[in-house]
Design a protein around this nucleic acid. Structure first.
Lengths: 235, 235
DNA sequence: GCTCCAATTCAACGAATGTTGAATCATGTG
DNA sequence: CACATGATTCAACATTCGTTGAATTGGAGC
């Protein structure tokens, strides 16, 4: 056993905390939030589990950091669409909401899982943070619906809070479940399950909330498949 | 420490395996599926953890048993509604689907959690079983939609598989999230959050799928709040 | 070249988990 | 009453988890 004692010190390349977050995101996406272990995250990041505790206070602090780098860009885009100055029709604005959601969340199952499950039950310290992040988003989308009523484009008796809930929530379900459930359940090809599902859903949703449900939807811009790069690593 | 050695044998009352399932259901509902431990279930049931392994082969076998006693009654009721002989209007039939779901799942967050999360990822052995249980339910609901199209009550271009997905899935979301999310997010009273949410949702959904979206819905029977008794303990 | 500090690794701790084997009791049957 | 059998408990097992303290290294500043 005379192999040399392994070097203990730092590797030539310093570990960027953001790279740990990338690894965490990937492991969360694969194993789920609770089942993801720090050891698995460390392995994915290529470092020792203890190093995570040097950069973050705890596992929960990693969640917070994940939320902190993912939500603000989403909120910023949503608030731009919700700004009263935006002259587009309500239908186009809501479809833009779908596109923004889609662009930011499609490639990030970890955040979806976080939003999905850990709101109801789970670490109590987390839910407060999620509230802080999600409430402004709800307000932005809801204001689009409120403006739509004022403009006479949406039915006057629309419950805008629940309408917001329906739109955002079903979007998550479509992203997470359609690609896996539909093929296994009904033998449907899953190639474009999400895109098809979102279009069918938006059509049904719009008929449900529009003042004139039979008026055809305007042409909708395509969904962009490319995920959003969270952080540009400079060369 | 001269306390007498505790009796090791069986308690005067035999432990019914169904009582263990009841306990499991309660603990799953409280802690979630993964976080629920056999020790917590045993404590809730008032027995030793090892006893669970006498009545069930493993933790997974408990899940199977839980599914086996919950799903058949739901399916039976749904298939009765989906029978082509049923003369009721499609709107009433779909509302009846909502009521059946509601009656059986409202008081059983454990099963909802099982349906919700463990389909996508998680124990692979489970998902097959869930498929076996869920597929017939999907078929029943979808056939209601198909019949609705044939009768001219639903829009001809309706995607019935996705329509089934939307109806059942949003129902689960409403049951689980509205009572906890809406009050915390928007200060809404949660007393009748679920009932209100379901009515608003069904109204929107029906407008989305109906051939004549502006025709008013027929009077809908009330939702029954009382949970279904799973097993009658004979006296 | 020496020193100090930030970054990293190693090894271990305590707690919790699913599971098992052996021991113990209760009860019905001969 | 003896005894077999089914039901229950105890104690322990091997893992895994989040977390921590000490040791070790590389590089920056003097």
């Amino acid at each position: 056993m005379p192999h040399a004692p392994r070097p203990r010190g730092p590797k030539p390349i310093r570990m960027d905390p953001d790279r740990i977050l990338d690894a965490a995101q990937e492991v969360f996406a694969r194993d789920g939030l609770r089942a993801a272990s720090l050891r698995a995250i460390a392995k994915q990041a290529g470092c020792d589990p203890a190093l995570i505790y040097y950069h973050f206070d705890s596992k929960e602090a990693m969640f917070t950091a994940l939320l902190a780098r993912r939500f603000p860009p989403i909120l910023q885009e949503l608030e731009a669409v919700a700004a009263p100055g935006d002259p587009r029709s309500t239908a186009l604005k809501l479809w833009e909401v779908v596109r923004i959601y889609h662009r930011h969340l499609k490639a990030d199952p970890a955040i979806r899982s976080l939003i999905r499950g850990e709101i109801v039950r789970g670490a109590e310290g987390l839910s407060g943070l999620i509230e802080v992040r999600i409430r402004p988003i709800v307000i932005a989308i809801r204001s689009i619906l409120d403006q739509g009523i004022s403009r006479g484009e949406l039915r006057a008796d629309l419950h805008t809070l629940l309408g917001t809930f329906f739109l955002a929530r079903m979007h998550l379900e479509i992203l997470d479940l359609l690609p896996t459930v539909l093929p296994r359940l009904m033998g449907l090809p899953h190639d474009q399950a999400v895109e098809t599902g979102l279009h069918v859903w938006f059509d049904l949703y719009w008929r449900g909330i529009a003042r004139d449900p039979l008026a055809p939807l305007p042409p909708l811009p395509e969904l962009e498949a490319d995920p959003i790069a969270i952080k540009e690593t400079r060369p």
